[in-house]
């Protein structure tokens, strides 16, 4: 009896305190860290990408590429994307070193000239391959790149989610804020609303067809990006995921970029 009272008293005293103590900023950061933590340790991965671009008139183009990623302990990932079509860009390859802090390092291999060119690091707001994805949308998402504010609980379809606001730290980002729907069970993003610098809803990204790999890591098979302002959209499909490829730093430098096929 005494014990029970004790617990109740404890709860009465401390629960509100912990609730008050954790600000929406802290709770938001905590969720973002959990999302990040659950993806640590995947090592490396390779996958194929098909990107279907659609303009407002209903014209459609498919783009094929291959992606290789190397997880870097204590920093952002390294990745190479090789473009397999259309004919005039085939063989072009994009190398990026994402960093938790500061600008990413990026190089482009231009096959016609056999030239590797370092490209401006603040292209993040720029269009990726004429799609509705900006470079920053496809880059590896690092906790440090945003500040957070927990919005509340919600549901996405049948799934219970946390809604979290993420504000880009870099003023060169194309967005003022993102609203992210995060699965409460799996801690993976299901939907993102992107607000432009004017605060207007610009784009929505929905993640579908999640599959789990190595019994731990979730990868979305379908990313649907809709631009509400222009009416254009891009659907990105990822297929053929392979983990434990044995990639090393040597597979992700300017020299290997020039050899990527």
């Amino acid at each position: 009896m005494l014990r029970k009272t004790n617990i109740i008293i404890w709860c009465l005293i401390f629960l509100p305190v912990t609730l008050v103590a954790q600000t929406p900023e802290e709770r938001g950061l905590e969720i973002a860290k959990e999302v990040d933590a659950r993806d640590i340790g995947f090592g490396d991965s390779a996958n194929k990408i098909t990107m279907v671009l659609r303009d407002q008139h209903g014209n459609e183009r498919s783009r094929y590429m291959r992606n290789r990623t190397l997880e870097v302990e204590g920093d952002g990932d390294k990745s190479i994307i090789i473009f397999d079509n259309p004919g005039d860009v085939k063989g072009t390859a994009f190398l990026s070193f994402t960093h938790k802090e500061g600008p990413d390092d990026q190089w482009l291999y231009i096959p016609a000239l056999r030239k590797v060119k370092r490209i401006a690091s603040n292209n993040k707001a720029g269009a990726f391959m004429n799609s509705e994805f900006a470079f920053e949308d496809i880059a590896s998402q690092e906790v440090e790149k945003y500040t957070y504010k927990y919005i509340g609980e919600d549901t996405y379809g049948e799934i219970a989610v946390f809604k979290n606001e993420a504000d880009p730290v870099d003023p060169k980002s194309g967005y003022s804020r993102l609203e992210v729907w995060i699965d409460q069970q799996r801690f993976i993003p299901l939907k993102v609303d992107f607000f432009n610098r004017g605060g207007k809803l610009k784009k929505t990204l929905e993640f579908d067809e999640y599959e789990q790999y190595l019994e731990k890591y979730w990868r979305a098979g379908k990313w649907t990006m809709t631009n509400h302002i222009t009416g254009k959209s891009t659907v990105l499909y990822t297929t053929g995921w392979v983990f434990n490829n044995g990639f090393t730093d040597k597979d992700f430098n300017k020299n290997s970029l020039s050899r990527a096929k």
Binding site: N122, G126, G174
Partner: peptide
């Protein structure tokens, strides 16, 4: 380089 000029996709 200027990116996403006048909120279009153009650079």
């Amino acid at each position: 380089t200027f990116y996403t000029i006048a909120s279009s996709n153009a650079d």
